[in-house]
Design a protein around this nucleic acid. Structure first.
Length: 655
RNA sequence: GCCCCGGUAGCUCAGCUGGAUAGAGCAACUGACUUCUAAUCAGUAGGUCGCAGGUUCGAAUCCUGCUCGGGGUGCCA
């Protein structure tokens, strides 16, 4: 049930007479029907009379009146008013609301209609690099992709999730090199994950060290040059009085000043990297492996070329690494329909490049095979001059595979917004290549920033490990649960801590508009008060508490309901909010924004708590009113539970 | 240089296909647990929506310029 949708359909034929056959305009006008901004204006408002009035050269209020007279709204609305310059305020009819509440009550899926045109979706998310420790940044892609897949399926699409693992990249070269030169066999036998992860970090550190060392003189001279440039500019600035010239110099000073800061930061990073090795026990190791950077690349290319030793090691390492990630996924209750990593596409890459070349889309440039695109300065490189393929090649192979094997109508890539340009190029090439029917969409999300306003470091420094974050979330939820529930069993406490702690962590991410960067804040991520999963879970638990206390079984009422009664305004408000669930889900899918579902659920929670405050179930005047309220409670709980389940967040009967 | 994002309350953020008085949460302050669970509720305070123009009956939202911050920018992913 979607009141907004039904209202639009009521107005559609009338609007179409105003804008003639311009179908796009009809939808624009119908889009101007929206939930009322203020409850005193009713439940919905239509704002199309103003532009239509202008178009027809008539006063908007008159146009509004004519449209309202023509539309048959009597079944849906009990009150239609024209206000201000020509707003049409619509108030839903109580009987219509009650009837639809009954339909929701009787339906497993709360009367959420399936979409008219189901599509095949592939949702590509999480996609961590195997063998690199997962960190807090990975949670965003994972929870957003998971939620979108669930919402898509719930409304009737066929959505499959794919974890496009980075299981074929340079990081494996690092591990291979580390394993061959630095492994501690005993540790590896006992705990391969820990040892591989140590080796990865060690090799990473050595590469950084040599890289920094090589770049140091260059960085120093670059900084010195910028500093003299800055000093000159400042001298010029003090000697200039003419306004326009001064403004110009000031701008340059600020720009160069910024570059100086950047250069300083780079230099500092390099020196830190160097000093962390030099003088320590790693110094001799570093000295023994001066060419580790190129050696690692060699290991990678040997792997890709089919070298037996490296292939065997890769085959041995991969399951170990995957198992490590699996423990995180298990804790998040995330499962994928498929996990076709980069390695899966390896054999297809050569053919694809050949095909692109044969069709004239790709050509050699500086030794590399490139696809040049009109709208981009730089080409998309599909094969390096050393013959190796890149992720763009793999991504093309992935598109081809998905189109051919899954008949995909749409592919969603839930990936950090820093890859924006990569995807624009990728989609442009795919289109050129013939895959121009499917919707290819980069569902980008903002970067997780540190408190310093810079993106979270992943290579060095203290990243917040995912496992540690999950532990802390459960710990904090557990402490509160213990405090509030005397005599709770250890099992229940653990379950409560898990559901609330992990749920709130996910919700913290999902409730934010995905496109914004966000500052990582331990306290906010783990908060259990205010707009959090715990708030909604608490609302659910409260309903269960009420139902236990009043000793009314809501289940029979689902198929044999009493008539709803709105004894107070808040009951009606709760009812209307409950009927907006489908609207919220369809809003989520317009631009793939799960935060809109969070917003909806939070609004529902707030309305419910108001209802809870004002409407007693224990002391109702009549049995029918009591049953009506039980029905509202039941629907609220089920809507919260269903909504949270679409975000892959659980609920508890007691908190 | 060029290209993308972003700047909204002390903090973290919603709202952005133009709509009526710009909203939450946190933090602060006041009040509500002998009452269906206080992980809650009621209330107070807090804003030149980065700046300046423009379009419009109407702009946080669209356009232009400026400014500040982040990111990307041929052989990493």
């Amino acid at each position: 049930m979607n009141a907004l949708h039904e209202l639009k359909e009521k107005f559609r034929p009338i609007i179409s007479t105003y804008v003639e056959s311009d179908a796009g305009q009809i939808d624009v006008m119908l889009g101007m029907i929206r939930p009322a901004g203020d409850p005193k204006h009713g439940d919905f408002q239509a704002n199309f009379a103003m532009p239509l009035g202008k178009r027809a050269g008539k006063p908007p209020r008159d146009v509004a009146q004519t449209i309202v007279d023509q539309a048959d709204l009597s079944a849906i609305c009990q009150n239609v008013e024209i206000a201000g310059p020509g707003f049409i305020n619509l108030k839903l009819d109580d009987d219509w609301i009650k009837q639809n509440l009954k339909a929701a009550l009787a339906d497993e899926k709360l009367a959420v209609a399936s979409v008219a045109a189901p599509r095949n979706y592939i949702v590509d998310y999480s996609s961590p690099n195997v063998a690199k420790p997962m960190h807090v940044g990975h949670i965003r892609s994972t929870v957003i992709g998971d939620a979108l897949t669930r919402v898509l399926n719930f409304v009737g699409h066929q959505a499959k999730s794919d974890n496009h693992l980075g299981d074929w990249g340079t990081q494996f070269g690092m591990i291979l090199y580390g394993y061959k030169h630095f492994r501690d066999q005993a540790t590896f036998d006992a705990d391969p994950i820990a040892e591989l992860s140590r080796l990865y970090r060690l090799v990473r550190k050595l590469i950084d060290y040599h890289g920094s060392k090589a770049k140091l003189p260059e960085l120093k001279s670059a900084l010195a040059e910028l500093e003299t440039q800055l000093a000159d500019l400042k001298k010029q600035q003090s000697g200039t009085e003419e306004k326009a010239a001064l403004k110009k110099i000031k701008k340059e000073v600020s720009q160069v000043g910024k570059r100086v800061t950047d250069a300083k930061e780079k230099l500092e990073k390099a020196t830190t990297s160097i000093s962390s090795v030099e003088g320590g026990e790693l110094a001799p190791v570093a000295a023994e492996h001066p060419d580790i950077g190129t050696a690692v690349l060699l290991e990678t290319s040997k792997l890709h070329a089919g070298d037996t030793e490296n292939r065997d090691l890769w085959t041995e390492f991969l399951p170990v690494c995957k198992q490590d990630m699996q423990t995180i996924y298990d804790r998040l209750s995330v499962a994928f329909d498929m996990e076709l990593g980069e390695s899966f596409y390896n054999d297809m890459l050569g053919t694809i490049v050949d095909e692109l070349e044969a069709k004239g889309y790709a050509r050699q440039s500086d030794g590399a095979m490139c696809v040049f695109l009109d709208d981009f300065e730089t080409p998309m490189i599909v094969r390096k001059k050393d013959g190796a393929f890149l992720y763009s090649t793999t991504d093309l192979a992935t598109i081809k595979y998905r189109m051919e094997n899954f008949d995909a109508d749409a592919c969603l890539y839930v990936v950090d917004h820093r890859q924006h340009e990569h995807f624009e190029k990728l989609f442009a090439v795919a289109k050129m290549w013939g895959y121009d029917e499917a919707e290819l969409k980069h569902v980008s999300f903002g970067t997780v920033m540190g408190k310093d306003g810079k993106p979270f470091q992943t290579r060095s420094g203290d990243t917040v490990g995912l496992a540690g974050l999950l532990n802390e979330a459960e710990k904090r939820a557990g402490e509160i649960a213990k405090e509030l529930n005397e005599g709770i069993s250890a099992d229940q406490l653990a379950e409560n801590a898990r559901v609330v702690g992990i749920g709130s962590l996910k919700y913290a991410d999902l409730s934010q508009n995905r496109s914004s960067d966000y500052t990582f804040d331990y306290e906010k991520m783990l908060a259990l008060k205010g707009n959090t999963a715990a708030y909604l879970q608490y609302g659910y638990a409260r309903v269960q508490g009420i139902l236990r206390k009043v000793e009314v079984d809501p289940v029979p009422l689902r198929s044999q309901p009493v008539d709803f009664e709105f004894a107070t305004d808040v009951e009606r408000a709760l009812a209307v909010q409950l009927l907006r669930f489908e609207e919220a889900l369809s809003d989520v899918l317009i631009d793939y924004k799960p935060n809109l579902l969070c917003n909806y659920l939070f609004d529902l929670g707030q309305t419910f708590f108001k209802f809870y405050d004002q409407c007693s179930l224990k002391d109702t005047e009549s049995e029918t009113l009591k049953s009506s309220r039980v029905q509202l409670c039941d629907l609220t709980a089920r809507t919260i539970k269903t909504g949270l389940s679409l975000l892959n967040i659980g609920v508890l009967d007691k908190m």
